[in-house]
């Protein structure tokens, strides 16, 4: 299919990027220039800060119980921009285009599944819930995103709850 080929080619040259404050669509290649410039600036500032002696800094206070809990709860909140819980990393747009017509991104964001289970989910969505047939290529792109961003969590980041958590495991619910 022609459009499919064009799409794939286009993706390689300019990664779609979601503009955080709206209004304009920015191509990845233009944006990257800006990112590099900001990164350089930060590096200069960082270097300047590092020159200052650190001796005057008070020794870090031991973590309090409350702080430890708060940190544990915040740990899985990555720096990357999210939309209703979904990370806006490459491939996000395909999930947006194919999945959120019916259900919220939050339904996806709640799940941390293996690639195999995600693939089963796409099959169920197609068979039972009205998802159109995906081309193998589109299916792969969606699965790549889901496996990368919504895969099983490691033990440390396993569960985020809004209230403080006991520090002993192994009951993973809290």
């Amino acid at each position: 299919m022609n459009t499919e080929t064009e799409h794939r080619t286009g993706l390689g040259s300019a990664t779609p990027f979601l503009h955080p404050w709206g209004g304009l669509a920015i191509r990845g290649d233009i944006l990257r220039v800006g990112v590099v410039a900001i990164a350089l600036l930060l590096q200069v500032c960082g270097a300047a800060a590092a020159d200052k002696p650190a001796a005057s800094q008070p020794a870090a206070a031991p973590k309090t119980f409350e702080q430890a809990n708060k940190e544990a709860a915040n740990k899985s909140k990555a720096a990357v921009q999210t939309f209703m819980g979904l990370k806006q990393t490459p491939g996000f747009e395909y999930v947006l285009a194919n999945c959120i017509g019916c259900h919220s991104p939050r339904l996806i964001a709640q799940h941390h599944l293996s690639r195999k289970r995600w693939e089963e989910t796409l099959v169920t969505m197609n068979k039972k819930h009205g998802l159109w047939k995906l081309s193998p290529d589109m299916k792969k792109r969606i699965l790549d995103y889901l496996a990368e961003n919504q895969g099983p969590l490691g033990d440390q980041e396993f569960k985020e709850t809004p209230w403080a958590q006991p520090l002993y495991r192994p009951n993973p619910l809290w």
Partner: peptide, 15 residues
Amino acid sequence: GEHFPDGLVPVALGQ
């Protein structure tokens, strides 16, 4: 889903 236009991206989804 098969024809998602490249470069033309949803805006105002940043928040």
